[in-house]
Design a protein around this nucleic acid. Sequence first.
DNA 1: ACACTCATACGATAAACGACGTACTACGAC
DNA 2: GTCGTAGTACGTCGTTTATCGTATGAGTGT
Lengths: 122, 122
Amino acid sequence: MPTAPVRVLEHPAPEEITLEGVLHALSDPTRLRIVRFLWRLEEDEGAPCSAIELEITKSTTTHHFRVLREAGVISQVYRGTAKMNALRRRDLGALFPGLLDAILAADAARHEREDVPARSPA
Amino acid sequence: MPTAPVRVLEHPAPEEITLEGVLHALSDPTRLRIVRFLWRLEEDEGAPCSAIELEITKSTTTHHFRVLREAGVISQVYRGTAKMNALRRRDLGALFPGLLDAILAADAARHEREDVPARSPA
DNA sequence: ACACTCATACGATAAACGACGTACTACGAC
DNA sequence: GTCGTAGTACGTCGTTTATCGTATGAGTGT
């Protein structure tokens, strides 16, 4: 077998992760949705790409997951035929403490405002 | 003078500010630098565009300030011949609590790591 | 071997972006 | 008025981006 295809994905080391890169990765609605989904999972738990329903084609989905991985936001490992995706909580937390929490809390608050049209308090 | 040019800039209302828009606006190094500069000023204090030294031309500077304004990150008001820029702390704080702080804290931490090359701890 | 599923690779395309230069407007000072 | 300064508008150029379609590979089950 000539140079067997490496089934290990390239991930940026923590010191290669940039704030701008992370912000850019999260500035796309589709990617923010992916991250929001992964955020709800348990620590170190992962999900295959197909676990998230997106109104885009598979190739575009692959593209977005790749952007997230190359920005250092998620990790991807092959597990059988699927590829498990997980947030890099530990690395991001060490590099940018509170950043992910603030962004996803802001995102959650936004969705509350939008999803619940006009619920008067009590 | 037919239809005098309006010297008031358009700003998005708070409900028009999107998280993605803010993240995208902050995902550019130049714009992040601008925001970092404005962040150090006092509450509601502003600075003209020319107060920040950037290695780009004036037209590009105008472009970046406009992106920040249209994303709802800064406010711009004419004051004589200059245009004062200020962070929209209140609006952003109400919409996305802690977001700006987390981003700028992350940015500050990053700069500390980079600016101090190899200071061994004690 | 075969089919099926999950995901990738490659190529194309249209849109957005960052940077620039030049020409212009608005304001204040002289 | 004239001049300088601060910033805008517009057009351009090259790069990146988001999307797609089609073809392909890697793994699992029959």
